[in-house]
């Protein structure tokens, strides 16, 4: 969504399309908030073995990305993980 969208009234057709796109992403991934929470905890656990991260600031979501093979798009998992310190970078 660009900044321009805030100034221009979106038509209800466009609103519908945007809502649907988001809705279908989670429908297709068949991912409940509970599962997302579990994934998040697991990611924190794994990454924490190697580096110190900001667990509070961690953000993961399922979005859509253009697929290379088929036409159309496929769901993708995006994670934004703020790193506090890399001091643990040596592998035990």
């Amino acid at each position: 969504m660009s900044i321009m969208d805030f100034f221009k009234r979106k038509s209800s057709g466009d609103v519908a399309k945007d809502r649907l796109k988001l809705l279908l992403i989670s429908d297709r991934a068949n991912c409940t908030p509970q599962i997302m929470e579990l994934i998040k905890n697991d990611i924190i656990q794994v990454i924490s073995k190697y580096m110190e991260i900001d667990a509070e600031g961690l953000d993961i979501q399922i979005t859509q990305t253009e697929s290379e093979g088929r036409n159309g798009s496929v769901p993708a998992l995006y994670a934004n993980i703020p790193i506090k310190d890399l001091k643990h970078s040596k592998v035990n």
Binding site: G13, L20, L24, N71, G72, S73
Partner: peptide, 19 residues
């Protein structure tokens, strides 16, 4: 008429989503 006004998703929109 509604598609023209932007108040209904167009065929393009639907095909785009359902692929």
């Amino acid at each position: 008429d509604m598609v023209k006004r932007g108040d209904m998703m167009s065929i393009d929109d639907v095909v785009d989503i359902l692929a």
